[in-house]
């Protein structure tokens, strides 16, 4: 009789969450630069991940998959915020003041950190997310490609372009 084999199941959801939660929180913090927003998006990321967990085929795809959920949620939040700010600006408020408040809302006041955050914020969305995943998340280009729904070459090019722009801004 052949020996029973093991199924290629993703880990139990709680284990998956425990293994990635700090990385995901850092990723979201870097993208949003706002603690309350980050908390909210972090919870939303994991609740969405749980709902969609049955669609994840194997354990190897877990990391880029959760990063792509978090990245998409952050992008949606930023888009909504931009829309709202546009409406506020039309109401007669100062959009520059709102943007400055948004940028400085996070912890830390070191000049270098702030200028880096500003430079990151100025990057186009895909390049910014690719750079954060590569340099702060330590992800492989293949994983970034899955998270950003593009080819690994495109992910590599996004990181390269982002770095080039950062260097130029210094």
């Amino acid at each position: 009789m052949a020996a029973p084999e093991k199924l290629d199941l993703p880990p139990p959801f709680e284990d998956a969450m425990r293994s990635l939660e700090r990385e995901i929180m850092r990723f979201i913090l870097r993208l949003t630069r706002d603690r309350e927003d980050s908390l909210d998006l972090f919870q939303e990321t994991w609740l969405r991940a749980y709902r969609a967990y049955p669609s994840l085929r194997s354990k190897s795809g877990l990391r880029p998959w959760v990063f792509s959920i978090a990245g998409n949620l952050c992008r949606n939040r930023a888009r909504d915020r931009r829309r709202r700010e546009r409406v506020i600006a039309n109401d007669g408020r100062d959009p520059e003041f709102e943007a400055a408040r948004f940028l400085h809302a996070d912890h830390g006041s070191h000049d270098g950190v702030i200028s880096l955050r500003r430079a990151l914020a100025a990057l186009p969305g895909k390049q910014g997310r690719a750079l954060i995943m590569r340099k702060f998340g330590g992800m492989e280009y293949a994983e970034i490609a899955v998270a950003l729904e593009c080819s690994p070459e495109s992910a590599r090019a996004s990181v390269y372009q982002a770095l080039k722009k950062l260097k130029a801004s210094q």
């Binding site: 939660e21 700090r22 850092r26 913090l29 908390l39 972090f42 919870q43």
Partner: peptide, 11 residues
């Protein structure tokens, strides 16, 4: 980050 993760976990 740890503090924020702990706060989020409860929710």
């Amino acid at each position: 980050v740890d503090t924020m993760v702990r706060r989020a976990r409860a929710g």
